[in-house]
Computed example of a mutant assay.
Amino acid sequence: MSTAGEARLARWERKVEWPLTVLAVLFLAAYAWQVLDDHAAAHLPLEIVLWLVWAVFAADYVIRFAFAVDKFRFLRTHLFELAAVVLPMVRQLRVLRLITVITLLNKKFQHKIRQRVSIYVAGVTLIFGFCASLAVLDAERHAENASITTFGDALWWTMTTMSTVGYGDRYPVTGEGRLVAALLMVGGIALLGVITGTIASWLVEKLRGVEEAELETAQELRNLRAEIAELRAELGARRTG
């Protein structure tokens, strides 16, 4: 019974993987258009598109929860998606469903773990940063005493926040903007940790490779010396013979 349920869940996830990815890209495009063009005549249609895509993601979550055999484990391992479904008023969280795109690209590099990490880090950083910039601009632009009023301001604030520099020349003043800031700070620290770990791993492997090459060279020299010694011994034996 459990095996059948897991198989149904796996089949469903394979079936909807690409359609949901396309919808995620559509969601990001519609949301970016709505935020960057604040006076767009298509504001209402774009809002309808955003809610329809959210409804599809919510339905997908409910269906996968129904197929899951271990319901508690499913909830525990899909907390982010649960928050995006339960808290639809925080629209900015839902754009992170685009991480699916990174997962799909990652499949091409399953045999190269470092390339997988690099793709994850680069992709998640770009998506996370772009979405955070849109989110904080959407939350702050019309607030009183706001210092983040353009997309350029939002990008600058995002870069300084993710890198933990925090100049303080731009900062959120709304509750929603501060929520975005909190998520961005936590995500930035995590990404920096992954990047640092990846670089450290690469350096260790390179140093290990140099040491192994030196050991191989030393072993080859010892073998050559042993062969030369044997040849000398044979020549000496022939001469005396």
Rank of each mutant, 00 (worst) to 15 (best):
Ala10Asn: 12
Arg11Thr: 14
Val22Thr: 10
Ala24Ser: 07
Ala24Ile: 01
Leu26Trp: 01
Ala30Asn: 02
Gln34Ser: 13
Val35Cys: 05
His39Phe: 09
His39Lys: 13
Pro45Gln: 08
Ile48Gly: 01
Val49Gly: 03
Ala58Trp: 02
Tyr61Pro: 02
Ala66Gln: 10
Ala66Lys: 05
Asp70Gly: 09
Phe72Ser: 15
Arg73Pro: 00
Leu75Thr: 10
Val86Met: 12
Pro88Phe: 09
Met89Phe: 14
Val90Asn: 12
Val90Asp: 14
Arg91Thr: 13
Leu93Val: 12
Leu105Asn: 05
Leu105Trp: 07
Lys107Leu: 12
Phe109Asn: 06
Lys112Ser: 12
Ile113His: 03
Arg114Glu: 14
Ser118Arg: 06
Val121Cys: 10
Val121Asn: 03
Ala122Pro: 08
Leu126Gln: 02
Ile127Glu: 04
Phe128Cys: 03
Gly129Ser: 13
Phe130Tyr: 11
Phe130Trp: 10
Ala139Phe: 04
Glu140Lys: 02
Gly152Phe: 08
Trp156Asn: 05
Trp156Phe: 11
Thr158Ala: 10
Thr158Ser: 11
Gly166His: 04
Tyr167Val: 12
Gly168Cys: 12
Asp169Tyr: 05
Asp169Gln: 09
Val173Ile: 14
Val173Glu: 07
Arg178Ala: 10
Arg178Thr: 11
Val180Thr: 05
Met185Ile: 15
Gly193Pro: 00
Val194Cys: 08
Gly197Asn: 09
Thr198Asn: 07
Ile199Met: 11
Trp202Asp: 15
Gly209Trp: 06
Val210Asp: 08
Glu211His: 05
Glu216Ala: 13
Leu224Ser: 06
Arg225Thr: 11
Glu227Gln: 09
Ile228Cys: 04
Ile228Gly: 00
Glu234Arg: 04
Gly236Gln: 09
